[in-house]
Design a protein around this nucleic acid. Structure first.
Lengths: 200, 200
DNA sequence: GTCTATAGGAGGATAGAC
DNA sequence: GTCTATCCTCCTATAGAC
């Protein structure tokens, strides 16, 4: 029961973080959304920062769980595309908290949160391994530093392009994911002037 | 004199918007940074939203001015690259205000701000024309909707990848711009399997 | 652990003198 | 148009009963 309630709280926080960001989210809104008194929230989480951090940890755990479902015998490149697509779908569904701004009190709370940092490290390690494998296979541009690729992949999870295209109501969520995946991995530039060399 | 003071105010706002975002920026901080009393600020701008909107209009005007300096006989693709590089440099210099979140009061203020919307429309028209020209020339992927390309270009101006790479202190600002420009236009994927066809 | 009620403080905005 | 001083609302957090 306690577990279920905390899950409900975290999901409400998650939604509000995605919609309004940490600074604009108020604890009152969370309490109303969950349907309990604000004081009760503080029995579960000692501060607004901890509340938000718990939501970020929750998302991180979901990401770890998703990574675990990806076939280890698939090509690293396919797995990377799958992960990026998954995070985009999460963002389009309004379940991806937006990044805290540079000087936010939430950032300080996150870097001193062991669960969050551990999750971040594990996800980074897995993605980093895939990136280097994909680069050595020639599927990813080997001239890009792996760290830049990693950051780019993380950044796509909060790309405002998704939100803009969704607002236009011209494309379905699936089409939006496809479009942004394409610009992410293939770039805006044309490959019309390039001809694929067959590998056989 | 009044003009100079308002410019100073706007630049302070700009910096704080870039560093902390609209919600976390306080009018007190602006006043301290400019070196005047808070009440004096309100003689120049009627509200925090107007203050921020003025800063956004300022950036938009700088963008328009920059666009005007680009040679009209250059290739559309070169101009697009130049614009994206310019916005990235602005962001790295801490002079690019971060996007207001979906439900921010700043968004409402912006959409009802004629100066801002006019500037946005003009910039969009110029970029849109270049995009379509570059697509018909085969320099930009013609399969991407022009609107998606436009949004992507706007979004690169607030890409957190820039900030992440800067924090790592491993690359110079110029190198960071080059890296992200490359991922933006060429994608993360390798073009090693592609061979450029000569056009002659 | 849930509630009502409230403390405490930050921050947007204004009053009014100069 | 600049200042000091103040208002007032909103928000985080807590007190204390049940």
């Amino acid at each position: 029961m306690l577990q279920a309630r905390e899950t409900a709280i975290i999901q409400a926080v998650n939604r509000l973080l995605a919609e309004r960001g940490f600074e604009a989210m108020t604890v009152d809104q969370v309490a109303i959304e969950v349907g309990i008194a604000k004081a009760s929230l503080y029995k579960h989480f000692p501060s607004k920062e901890d509340l938000a951090a718990a939501a970020m940890v929750w998302v991180m755990r979901r990401a770890q769980a998703y990574l675990a479902t990806l076939p280890s015998d698939a090509s690293p490149m396919d797995n990377l595309r799958a992960v990026v697509g998954w995070t985009m779908a999460l963002k389009l569904a309004g379940e991806m908290p937006s990044l805290p701004s540079q000087n936010s009190s939430l950032r300080a709370a996150l870097v001193s949160n062991k669960d969050y940092m551990d999750g971040l490290m594990e996800v980074s390690d897995i993605l980093g391994a895939w990136i280097e494998a994909a680069q050595s296979q020639g599927a990813l541009n080997a001239k890009l530093p792996a760290i830049a690729v990693l950051y780019t992949i993380f950044a796509r999870a909060c790309d405002p392009v998704l939100e803009f295209l969704k607002m236009g109501q011209q494309y379905s969520d699936e089409e939006i994911v496809e479009l942004v995946l394409s610009t992410c991995f293939d770039g805006l530039g044309s490959r019309a002037n390039f001809r694929q060399e067959t590998n056989g």
